[in-house]
Protein backbone atom coordinates (compact mmCIF):
# COMPACT_ATOMS: atom_id res chain seq x y z
CA UNK A 1 0.00 0.00 0.00
CA UNK A 2 1.33 3.43 -0.85
CA UNK A 3 -0.31 6.85 -0.59
CA UNK A 4 -0.64 7.81 3.03
CA UNK A 5 0.44 4.46 4.39
CA UNK A 6 3.39 5.16 6.70
CA UNK A 7 3.93 1.63 8.04
CA UNK A 8 7.35 0.09 7.51
CA UNK A 9 8.15 -3.57 8.01
CA UNK A 10 11.30 -3.51 10.10
CA UNK A 11 13.32 -1.35 12.46
CA UNK A 12 16.11 -1.43 9.91
CA UNK A 13 13.80 0.19 7.41
CA UNK A 14 12.49 2.58 10.06
CA UNK A 15 15.95 4.08 10.62
CA UNK A 16 17.24 3.77 7.03
CA UNK A 17 19.26 6.80 6.01
CA UNK A 18 20.66 7.68 9.43
CA UNK A 19 24.28 8.75 9.10
CA UNK A 20 27.21 9.75 11.27
CA UNK A 21 27.05 13.34 12.47
CA UNK A 22 23.28 13.71 12.23
CA UNK A 23 21.01 15.47 14.71
CA UNK A 24 18.35 13.26 16.26
CA UNK A 25 15.41 14.64 18.24
CA UNK A 26 13.97 12.13 20.68
CA UNK A 27 10.71 12.14 22.63
CA UNK A 28 10.46 10.96 26.21
CA UNK A 29 10.80 12.24 29.76
CA UNK A 30 13.13 10.19 31.91
CA UNK A 31 12.35 6.64 30.80
CA UNK A 32 8.68 7.46 30.22
CA UNK A 33 7.54 7.42 26.60
CA UNK A 34 10.95 6.77 25.08
CA UNK A 35 11.35 5.17 21.64
CA UNK A 36 13.14 2.14 23.07
CA UNK A 37 13.40 0.10 19.90
CA UNK A 38 14.43 2.98 17.65
CA UNK A 39 17.23 3.76 20.12
CA UNK A 40 18.21 0.09 20.07
CA UNK A 41 18.33 0.21 16.26
CA UNK A 42 20.66 3.23 16.37
CA UNK A 43 22.90 1.30 18.76
CA UNK A 44 22.87 -1.69 16.45
CA UNK A 45 23.88 0.47 13.51
CA UNK A 46 26.74 2.02 15.52
CA UNK A 47 26.05 5.43 14.00
CA UNK A 48 28.56 7.88 15.50
CA UNK A 49 29.10 11.57 16.17
CA UNK A 50 25.41 12.08 16.85
CA UNK A 51 23.85 15.18 18.32
CA UNK A 52 20.89 14.06 20.39
CA UNK A 53 18.19 16.47 21.45
CA UNK A 54 16.22 14.93 24.30
CA UNK A 55 15.12 16.13 27.72
CA UNK A 56 17.22 13.42 29.39
CA UNK A 57 19.81 10.84 28.39
CA UNK A 58 18.26 7.71 29.82
CA UNK A 59 20.04 5.78 32.57
CA UNK A 60 23.09 3.54 32.55
CA UNK A 61 22.20 0.61 30.29
CA UNK A 62 18.73 1.76 29.22
CA UNK A 63 17.17 4.36 26.97
CA UNK A 64 19.54 6.80 25.33
CA UNK A 65 22.15 5.74 27.91
CA UNK A 66 22.97 2.73 25.70
CA UNK A 67 24.28 5.04 22.96
CA UNK A 68 26.96 6.30 25.35
CA UNK A 69 28.40 2.81 25.79
CA UNK A 70 30.04 2.83 22.37
CA UNK A 71 30.67 6.57 22.25
CA UNK A 72 28.01 7.19 19.61
CA UNK A 73 27.01 10.56 21.01
CA UNK A 74 29.03 13.70 20.33
CA UNK A 75 26.63 16.15 21.91
CA UNK A 76 23.50 16.09 24.05
CA UNK A 77 21.00 18.93 24.18
CA UNK A 78 19.04 18.26 27.38
CA UNK A 79 17.57 19.90 30.46
CA UNK A 80 18.54 17.25 32.98
CA UNK A 81 21.18 14.55 32.74
CA UNK A 82 21.60 13.58 36.37
CA UNK A 83 20.67 9.90 36.29
CA UNK A 84 23.59 8.56 34.37
CA UNK A 85 27.10 7.82 35.71
CA UNK A 86 28.60 7.06 32.27
CA UNK A 87 27.27 10.37 31.02
CA UNK A 88 28.98 12.24 33.82
CA UNK A 89 32.24 10.39 33.22
CA UNK A 90 32.30 11.15 29.48
CA UNK A 91 31.37 14.75 30.15
CA UNK A 92 34.19 15.22 32.65
CA UNK A 93 36.64 13.49 30.29
CA UNK A 94 35.67 15.85 27.50
CA UNK A 95 34.42 12.96 25.35
CA UNK A 96 30.91 14.33 25.33
CA UNK A 97 29.53 17.83 24.91
CA UNK A 98 26.35 18.92 26.62
CA UNK A 99 24.18 21.94 25.96
CA UNK A 100 22.03 22.25 29.05
CA UNK A 101 18.77 23.87 28.03
CA UNK A 102 15.84 24.81 30.27
CA UNK A 103 13.06 22.28 29.90
CA UNK A 104 10.44 24.74 28.69
CA UNK A 105 12.88 26.32 26.28
CA UNK A 106 13.77 22.87 24.94
CA UNK A 107 10.10 22.04 24.39
CA UNK A 108 9.52 25.37 22.66
CA UNK A 109 12.66 24.94 20.50
CA UNK A 110 11.16 21.71 19.16
CA UNK A 111 7.69 23.16 18.78
CA UNK A 112 8.99 26.26 17.00
CA UNK A 113 11.34 24.19 14.84
CA UNK A 114 8.47 22.06 13.67
CA UNK A 115 6.25 25.10 13.15
CA UNK A 116 8.70 26.96 10.91
CA UNK A 117 9.60 29.59 13.51
CA UNK A 118 13.39 30.09 13.56
CA UNK A 119 13.66 31.72 16.99
CA UNK A 120 11.60 33.11 19.85
CA UNK A 121 12.01 35.32 22.92
CA UNK A 122 11.60 33.92 26.43
CA UNK A 123 12.22 35.30 29.90
CA UNK A 124 13.60 31.93 30.95
CA UNK A 125 17.32 32.11 31.69
CA UNK A 126 17.76 35.89 31.67
CA UNK A 127 20.71 36.78 33.92
CA UNK A 128 21.90 33.15 34.12
CA UNK A 129 24.82 31.36 32.44
CA UNK A 130 22.58 30.16 29.61
CA UNK A 131 22.08 33.77 28.49
CA UNK A 132 25.74 34.07 27.50
CA UNK A 133 26.12 35.08 23.87
CA UNK A 134 22.38 35.41 23.31
CA UNK A 135 20.52 38.52 22.24
CA UNK A 136 18.53 40.17 25.03
CA UNK A 137 15.61 42.40 24.14
CA UNK A 138 13.17 44.30 26.29
CA UNK A 139 9.41 44.03 25.82
CA UNK A 140 7.06 45.96 28.12
CA UNK A 141 9.85 46.65 30.57
CA UNK A 142 11.02 43.06 30.91
CA UNK A 143 14.10 41.37 29.45
CA UNK A 144 13.84 38.32 27.21
CA UNK A 145 16.39 36.02 25.56
CA UNK A 146 16.36 35.12 21.90
CA UNK A 147 16.42 31.33 21.60
CA UNK A 148 16.79 29.55 18.27
CA UNK A 149 14.54 26.67 17.35
CA UNK A 150 15.71 23.14 16.58
CA UNK A 151 15.10 20.76 13.73
CA UNK A 152 16.51 17.27 13.47
CA UNK A 153 17.62 15.10 10.59
CA UNK A 154 15.53 12.45 12.32
CA UNK A 155 12.91 12.61 15.03
CA UNK A 156 12.29 9.40 16.97
CA UNK A 157 8.96 9.19 18.73
CA UNK A 158 7.06 6.75 20.94
CA UNK A 159 3.28 6.68 20.58
CA UNK A 160 0.55 4.47 21.98
CA UNK A 161 -1.86 3.87 19.10
CA UNK A 162 -1.67 4.91 15.49
CA UNK A 163 -3.38 4.16 12.22
CA UNK A 164 -1.57 3.50 8.94
CA UNK A 165 -1.88 7.15 7.99
CA UNK A 166 0.40 8.02 10.90
CA UNK A 167 -2.25 9.61 13.11
CA UNK A 168 -0.91 9.04 16.61
CA UNK A 169 -2.19 9.24 20.17
CA UNK A 170 -0.01 9.03 23.26
CA UNK A 171 -0.78 7.31 26.52
CA UNK A 172 -0.92 9.31 29.79
CA UNK A 173 2.27 11.23 30.61
CA UNK A 174 4.20 9.25 28.00
CA UNK A 175 3.10 12.12 25.76
CA UNK A 176 5.64 14.67 27.12
CA UNK A 177 8.07 15.75 24.37
CA UNK A 178 6.86 13.19 21.80
CA UNK A 179 4.33 15.29 19.85
CA UNK A 180 6.86 18.15 19.69
CA UNK A 181 9.67 15.92 18.48
CA UNK A 182 7.29 14.49 15.88
CA UNK A 183 6.92 17.89 14.21
CA UNK A 184 10.62 18.71 14.14
CA UNK A 185 12.25 15.88 12.19
CA UNK A 186 13.15 16.02 8.51
CA UNK A 187 12.32 12.35 8.79
CA UNK A 188 9.96 11.52 11.66
CA UNK A 189 9.82 7.92 12.77
CA UNK A 190 7.13 6.83 15.20
CA UNK A 191 6.95 3.51 17.01
CA UNK A 192 3.71 2.54 18.69
CA UNK A 193 2.25 -0.24 20.80
CA UNK A 194 -0.78 -0.82 18.65
CA UNK A 195 -1.83 -0.27 15.07
CA UNK A 196 -5.54 0.43 14.63
CA UNK A 197 -7.74 0.68 11.56
CA UNK A 198 -7.89 4.01 9.74
CA UNK A 199 -10.99 5.77 11.03
CA UNK A 200 -10.90 4.09 14.42
CA UNK A 201 -9.25 7.01 16.23
CA UNK A 202 -11.54 9.95 16.90
CA UNK A 203 -10.18 12.70 14.60
CA UNK A 204 -10.59 15.29 17.36
CA UNK A 205 -8.51 13.22 19.78
CA UNK A 206 -5.45 12.75 17.61
CA UNK A 207 -2.32 14.22 19.21
CA UNK A 208 0.00 13.97 16.19
CA UNK A 209 -1.69 14.21 12.78
CA UNK A 210 -0.22 11.92 10.14
CA UNK A 211 1.17 14.82 8.09
CA UNK A 212 4.14 14.95 10.49
CA UNK A 213 4.89 11.23 10.32
CA UNK A 214 7.10 9.64 7.67
CA UNK A 215 7.53 6.13 9.01
CA UNK A 216 5.51 4.09 11.46
CA UNK A 217 6.30 0.78 13.10
CA UNK A 218 4.67 -1.36 15.77
CA UNK A 219 6.92 -2.60 18.56
CA UNK A 220 6.94 -4.19 21.98
CA UNK A 221 8.19 -2.17 24.91
CA UNK A 222 9.82 -2.90 28.23
CA UNK A 223 8.63 0.40 29.76
CA UNK A 224 11.11 0.36 32.59
CA UNK A 225 10.10 2.38 35.66
CA UNK A 226 12.77 4.79 36.86
CA UNK A 227 11.39 5.58 40.32
CA UNK A 228 8.83 3.17 41.60
CA UNK A 229 6.74 4.96 44.24
CA UNK A 230 3.62 3.32 45.68
CA UNK A 231 1.19 3.74 48.53
CA UNK A 232 -0.07 0.79 50.53
CA UNK A 233 -3.13 -0.87 49.01
CA UNK A 234 -6.27 -0.01 50.94
Amino acid sequence: MAGFDKVVGSYEEAMAGIEDGMTIIAGGFGLCGIPENLIAEIKKRQTKELTIVSNNCGVDGFGLGVLLEDMQVKKMVSSYVGENALFEKQLLNGELEVELTPQGTLAEKMRAGGAGIPAFYTATGVGTPIAEGKEVREFNGREYLLEESIRGDFAIVKGWKADRYGNVIYRHTAQNFNPLAATAGKITVVEVEELVEVGELDPAHIHTPGIYVDRLIVGTFEKRIEKRTVTESA
Binding site: F29, G30, L31, C32, G33, N55, E83, Q103, G104, L106, A107, E108, M110, R111, W160, R171, H172, T173, A174, Q175, N176, F177, N178, P179, L180, H207, K223, R224, I225, E226, K227, R228, T229, V230
Partner: peptide
Protein backbone atom coordinates in the same frame (compact mmCIF):
# COMPACT_ATOMS: atom_id res chain seq x y z
CA UNK B 1 1.14 1.34 39.05
CA UNK B 2 1.70 2.39 35.43
CA UNK B 3 5.03 3.20 33.77
CA UNK B 4 3.26 5.76 31.57
CA UNK B 5 2.06 7.77 34.55
CA UNK B 6 4.84 9.73 36.22
CA UNK B 7 5.51 13.16 37.69
CA UNK B 8 8.36 15.57 36.98
CA UNK B 9 10.45 13.79 39.62
CA UNK B 10 9.99 10.62 37.52
CA UNK B 11 8.04 9.02 40.34
CA UNK B 12 5.02 6.90 39.49
CA UNK B 13 1.84 8.80 40.34
CA UNK B 14 -1.88 8.85 39.64
CA UNK B 15 -4.14 11.55 38.21
CA UNK B 16 -7.04 12.98 40.20
CA UNK B 17 -10.55 13.15 38.82
CA UNK B 18 -10.69 16.17 36.52
CA UNK B 19 -6.99 16.03 35.64
CA UNK B 20 -5.63 16.82 32.20
CA UNK B 21 -2.53 15.55 30.39
CA UNK B 22 -0.68 17.41 27.67
CA UNK B 23 2.65 17.91 25.95
CA UNK B 24 5.75 19.53 27.46
CA UNK B 25 5.21 22.64 25.29
CA UNK B 26 1.67 23.04 26.62
CA UNK B 27 2.93 22.48 30.15
CA UNK B 28 5.50 25.25 29.88
Amino acid sequence: IDADMINAGKQTVTAVKGASIFSSAESF
